[in-house]
């Protein structure tokens, strides 16, 4: 018998959600993370014809209550590359019935043949409702201020590839990111990307430093778990960073919180000068969409330390594996994976 750690036990606890769902990174054990990464790598290595057989004849619905070109396109292309039929339901196309409950919309999609639903929703926790009510595997593509699990997994793969090499991105254990410090800077309070990363990366041994002003980063953030720290001084945080992850700042939020834009830029913008002075070797990440000139400067976004474009490519790959996992296909369809 393999010894099951407490964390593994908690992550593997019985839940009223279909196997293959990904609602929160908190549900993922290190073993599961490792399986997702190895399947990501395996799918990447397949010839297009082989790849497109994995989900042939399967139907995936994308249910988007918030617009998101980046995430939606990424999931959609991932599903198509595996041969799945996709159907997009979004409030933009007004195909979401006005006033219809999430439960009823989900049940309709299921009745139409959807075997998995990818959900983007403005309400934190909405994917849990959908998964409970439909019994289908649900992939959380971003829910309110809560989580964005696939983004954290693609960030992980980006870090592993750049810091440890492509081989290291094929499998992980709880020490895969030992000695790595990831600084996440910006509007942590409203960021689902920050929450998912801060809960995922410490599982693999990383140290996560959150950085930002009190109004965007309350002390409560320490409750995200062990391995998470707060450093208000950006330069001091950067000096410790192996990875600098910048988050988008929405102007209207700064105004609402009475934060001065100029002051914010002066204290927290990642620009060339700052990067050279404090973190000349750190990897720079941004989940996008970026606001150049605000949280990040042009020369950094396009500079040699930036892996922002690679993140997009890793996103496509990781999401393919998540879809295979959701539909118990590919390596996840064999045995007890």
């Amino acid at each position: 018998m393999q010894k099951v750690s407490e964390e593994e036990a908690a992550a593997g606890a019985q839940r009223p959600y279909a196997e293959g769902s990904l609602l929160s990174v908190a549900h993922l054990s290190v073993d599961e993370i490792s399986r997702i990464l190895s399947e990501t790598d395996r799918i990447r290595s397949l010839a297009p014809a082989e790849r497109s057989a994995i989900l042939r004849g399967r139907t995936v619905a994308l249910l988007f209550y918030e617009s998101s070109t980046r995430t939606r396109t990424s999931f959609e292309l991932a599903a198509k590359s595996l041969g799945a039929t996709t159907t997009l339901v979004s409030d933009k196309s007004s195909s979401i019935e006005k006033g219809e409950s999430l439960k009823d919309t989900g049940l309709t999609l299921r009745a139409l043949g959807a075997e998995c639903i990818i959900l983007r929703h403005s309400a934190s926790g909405a994917p849990f409702v959908l998964a409970r009510e439909t019994g289908l595997p649900v992939l959380n593509a971003g829910d309110g201020m809560h989580e964005h699990p696939s983004q954290a997994l693609l960030d992980l793969r980006t870090m592993l590839t750049r810091l440890r090499g492509p081989e290291a991105a094929k499998a992980v254990d709880s020490k895969a990111l030992a000695g790595v410090t990831v600084v996440i800077t910006g509007d942590i309070l409203h960021s689902r990307v920050a929450r998912s990363n801060a809960m995922l990366l410490p599982k693999l041994g990383a140290r996560v430093i959150l950085c930002g002003p009190e109004k965007l980063l309350p002390e409560l953030a320490l409750g995200l778990g062990e391995g998470v720290e707060i450093e208000r001084d950006f330069d001091r945080a950067l000096a410790q960073a192996n990875v600098a992850m910048m988050l988008r700042i929405q102007r209207e939020r700064l105004a609402g919180l009475e934060l001065d834009l100029g002051d914010y830029i002066a204290r927290y913008q990642l620009n060339g000068e700052r990067l050279a002075a404090h973190a000349p070797k750190a990897l720079v990440l941004h989940p996008g969409p970026m606001i150049r000139g605000l949280e990040i400067s042009d020369e950094v976004a396009d500079g040699p330390q930036s892996a922002i474009e690679e993140q997009v490519a890793h996103g496509l790959a990781v999401r393919s594996a998540l879809l295979a996992r959701a539909l118990r296909a590919g390596a996840f369809g064999k045995g007890n994976a």
């Binding site: 926790g125 929450r195 409750g223």
Partner: peptide, 11 residues
């Protein structure tokens, strides 16, 4: 409630 749980859940 405003607390660590609300922060974690994004509420």
């Amino acid at each position: 409630n405003a607390g660590p749980m609300a922060f974690r859940l994004g509420l």
